[in-house]
Write a protein that binds this DNA or RNA. Structure first.
Lengths: 211, 211
DNA sequence: TGAGTGATCTTTACACTGTCAAGATTTGCC
DNA sequence: GGCAAATCTTGACAGTGTAAAGATCACTCA
């Protein structure tokens, strides 16, 4: 009768039932709605109806919780990119561009989460393998597209790396500029951001063409 | 005999002597050396050898102090960009590129400060006119260079805006990727970052050429 | 089966934070 | 010279992260 059911892998455990998952979801909720500053260990514990020290049995400290949230963010972003790329039936370069647009749109749709993913305390990702993996995996998607789209041209071997990093940098910068309101208040709207990202990726796109 | 001297404009005041300036400097110091998380109102007050409430007579709250630090960051970054552009004797497009490189180098040399400048709580710059101005001013420098370098070609009037934003986005993304260690540990080194930024701006540079 | 062991959760406690409220001191101005 | 405003201090409070120690449960293996 409790909110617990059988679950072969990570059995919901004994007491509460998959507290870790509940905590991450609660933290995600707070972050998305109110931002990182509003996230406290104790409020998350309260949301999960558990004592304020319970979370410490699943996360070493607050940073670890935030890292878990950030990792979830990277996974979701990667999914969003994959989906959008899959929907594109044009050439590889167009697909690469689509992945970048998905990146910007994701940021505009989840500004607070996006910021957590690139917050100061997440800079030392090495402390959190799960986060490291999730972030690398998102970048790898982009990197893969660049490699494929470069496959024909026998360029400098470092060229692919440089282009993928440039592409990533461009869309990352666009995302930040949008959610920071530096471009204008309208950039908060995902539809606007989408069109904007499409245009703004044009120069790099053309630059790649030349090579 | 106190460390106070005449000063027509912002007289160092009575008691302590330009406490505001001292507080900002102390805060800058903490941020640069230990990051935003280590910055507390009380520790800044201690550093300035005043009571823990004294800062509140110069900053409405902690956010206001952080905003002042961020504004100082934007001013320094703009200076760094101006300097580097001034040292460049080549054409306008090269100067634009130099400003971008200066942007990235500044970020790598001042990672913690750079992150504060783009931290979540600084997203509502509108609350802090000084910060707003400093940030806009830095962007205006870049924007001006783009406009000049586009002057010859009678393009779409929006084209300039788009290119300047793209250019800004690119270098901003490069900066973040560098200081987040996503590119590699060597990207922490200003010299490496400089070379890297030079190369990475190539594609956009070429893209602009085509138009 | 049943005792023990480790995982999970709770309670208590502490140092520290941001900030409110009220008072003390100093400064510049009329 | 005195007054009002600016500046600084003291004290207090709720809320935070987390260390320490104890309670409770679930599963293992005899």
């Amino acid at each position: 009768m409790c909110p617990t059911r059988r679950n072969p892998k990570s059995r919901r455990s004994y007491h509460h039932g998959d507290l870790r998952r509940v905590l991450i979801d609660a933290a995600l909720d707070v972050v998305q709605k109110q931002g990182l500053a509003a996230l406290t260990m104790r409020s998350v514990a309260r949301a999960a109806k558990v004592s304020h020290m319970a979370p410490y049995h699943h996360f070493e400290d607050k940073s670890a919780l935030v890292a878990a949230v950030a990792a979830e963010g990277f996974r979701r972003m990667r999914s969003a990119m994959e989906e959008r790329v899959a929907r594109c039936s044009e050439g590889l370069r167009a697909r690469l561009r689509e992945s970048g647009i998905a990146y910007v749109v994701f940021a505009v749709e989840n500004p607070n989460l996006f910021r957590v993913m690139f917050s100061a305390q997440m800079a030392e990702k090495s402390n959190y393998p799960e986060l490291q993996d999730a972030a690398s995996s998102a970048f790898a998607l982009l990197r893969g597209l660049v490699d494929e789209s470069q496959a024909g041209t026998p360029d400098d071997p470092d060229e692919g790396e440089l282009i993928s990093v440039s592409a990533w940098a461009l869309v990352h910068g666009l995302a930040i500029l949008c959610i920071d309101g530096q471009i204008g208040p309208e950039a908060t709207d995902p539809e606007f951001a989408e069109k904007f990202a499409y245009q703004a990726t044009g120069a790099l796109y053309r630059g790649m063409a030349r090579g």
